[in-house]
């Protein structure tokens, strides 16, 4: 069974030794890390500045909460790319570990297709939902940031995540048969 452990060994080691992240994450990973890192840092910074502004200067940041919400949603769907690339979706491997090894590539390919399919349906529905929200001009409360573009962004991330999730195990299976 795999479940989010805070940081796995390799990553901790790399972080400790300050290795260049490209080696561990690959170029796509570094791009994701840079963009996601900026968004996470912004979320943290918003809270810190909002609290300091409110407590010391009686002037909180207008819309800090809704900006945090937008950043959170974007981070989750951007992170889906990282999870999909690493094939790190959380699974139960209670029984699968005991299955004979020749089955595994087929099992993984099927699981990948199922997951990719679900993600593509999710992507499709996110797109439609975003269009619906855009149709009535849905926006955030105080800053009136339109919400629909965020929905389209999430839909695109879900589609890419779905394709990667379905494709990676399938590619290994095909490669196995062509060798």
């Amino acid at each position: 069974m795999r479940q989010p452990v805070l940081m796995d060994e390799k990553q901790q080691e790399a972080a400790r030794k300050e290795l260049p992240p490209g080696k561990l994450l690959g170029p796509a990973g570094v791009a994701l890390a840079a963009l996601g890192g900026v968004m996470l840092t912004a979320m943290m910074g918003l809270t810190v500045c909002d609290v300091i502004g409110r407590y010391l200067f009686n002037s909180p940041i207008k819309g800090a909460a809704e900006l945090t919400e937008v950043l959170l949603c974007a981070t989750i769907f951007l992170g889906l790319g990282a999870v999909s690339l690493k094939e790190d979706h959380v699974t139960v491997d209670l029984v699968t570990d005991k299955m004979p090894s020749f089955i595994q590539p087929y099992r993984l390919a099927l699981a990948g297709l199922f997951s990719g399919g679900v993600l593509l349906v999710v992507s499709w529905r996110l797109w439609i939902y975003a269009a619906q929200i855009g149709g009535y001009g849905g926006s955030t409360t105080n800053l009136a940031i339109p919400i629909a573009p965020l929905g389209y962004f999430c839909a695109i991330c879900a589609a890419l995540g779905g394709l990667i999730t379905a494709f990676l195990p399938l590619k290994r299976l095909v490669a196995r048969h062509t060798v």
């Binding site: 972080a15 290795l19 890192g37 989750i76």
Partner: peptide, 20 residues
Amino acid sequence: NSMLIVLYDTMKTTAMMFFI
């Protein structure tokens, strides 16, 4: 460098938990 890895991991774990 280490910040990038730490934040990458935070984002990845966040996505894993939220999709569950």
